[in-house]
Design a protein around this nucleic acid. Sequence first.
RNA 1: GGCCCAGUGGCAGAGUGGUUAUGCAGCGGCCUGCAAAGCCGUGUACAUCGGUUCGAUUCCGGUCUGGGCCUCCA
Length: 447
Amino acid sequence: MTELFFHNTLKRAKEAFTPIDDQHIRIYACGPTVYDRIHVGNARPVVLFDVLVRVLRHHFPKVTYVRNITDVDDKINARAAEEGVSIRQLTEETTKAFHVDCAALGAMPPDIEPRATDHIDAMITMITALITKGHAYEAEGHVLFQVDSMADYGQLSRRSLDELIAGARVEVTPFKKAPADFVLWKPSDDNQPGWESPWGRGRPGWHIECSAMSAAYLGEEFDIHAGGLDLIFPHHENEIAQSRCAHGTSMMARYWMHNGYVTVDGEKMSKSLGNFTRVADVLAKYPGEAMRYALMTAHYRAPLDFSMAGVAEAKSALDTLYRASANAEGDGKVDDGMLSALGDDLNTPNALARLHELARQANKGDAKAAANLKASAQMMGLLLSESSAWFQGDAADDDAAINDAIAARNEAKARKDYGEADRIRDELTAQGIALEDGPDGTIWRRI
RNA sequence: GGCCCAGUGGCAGAGUGGUUAUGCAGCGGCCUGCAAAGCCGUGUACAUCGGUUCGAUUCCGGUCUGGGCCUCCA
């Protein structure tokens, strides 16, 4: 079978993908903290790892894709208080909105979407194991992971303990044995969400949920763990520490894949900088598929500079593909060139280039190429609509009027009354309707 | 300060030690009543300075510029 290659952050190199069990691929991606609607930066991993999972499903008989929902977090508490709604209402509504955005982006739901609050017991069990094995300690109602209890801590982010301390940006808290130690469990006051535990009423630290939930659904060791570049440290580093120390394993995930940032004028798009655009705001202007395409135009590890103009350009490129695929006949075959591009560390720009090559063949009258184009694009989660729906939108009330106008124009053309024909066409153009005269008659589209 | 990434034609963005990326936009042609769409053609592109090499945009080193992580972050 085709060999797949992925860049592994653990090795900082591209490696051949060798599954732990080639009958069942297991992959985990970090999902959103549900306190606000996602922005374009959050959408990038959603779309790219969706492509990754589609590629894996194409090559392997079974894939289990887990993406969590973080529904316990101090940002959530703060936002709920700010808006005067309950935490549960905020997290549930935000989760629903997240699903709406994902669907618009053409991202298939993960197989399992666990919520942190449903797995508190598993986290407590794991923390208990870490204490028992001498990797964690309790202090003033907190439980902390003792970083120097792990000999090879820091492998993923390539950071040594000395560097961390030298960095001096780690939180210095009196009850920590060492500054780099991080929280597994912290106490909650009466106004904060909390659960009973051996250490009193409290709530989990940020990193432990992914360790507990990935183990619950994928096992102690699994194939791929994915997320944004900014999660390498501390989040993923600490997940590895917790998981390996609790389970006594030599690895957590075999491959670690990280997507690059979405930038705005060269700067990272982020909540704190305030330079973000919500996915919903893009969807108000452009189809979700154009947003999806735009996110696939850059390699997933490279920075992607976002602009509305970029989405507009993606829309134009999609128009080309939709036109070319319109005359598809029969069942198409997923293109090998596209598959090998995707199998080469998820090279979506090259895969899209291959789609455009198929489109050119299709436009020269190759119906087979058109069918292959459609099948290939759909494997990537593109060209999912009918071509007519893409160009004309859902059937609207004015469709009949447009068709009447086209008929009137064609009559005028038959009379060689081009003045009248052009007048009708100009009128439609003014309404945002473009006409194209082809061998099979006149077709129209919205512009 | 430590660690890390990037710099490609008007724009976006792949890739390669010597030969076409691809898309969007532009220009010329074909087609069309005219358009549109499509097809064909069209751009002395690889930050900079050295080194290795028969040959470097591609490898190595320095410089400059931009960005990121080290604190919540996709």
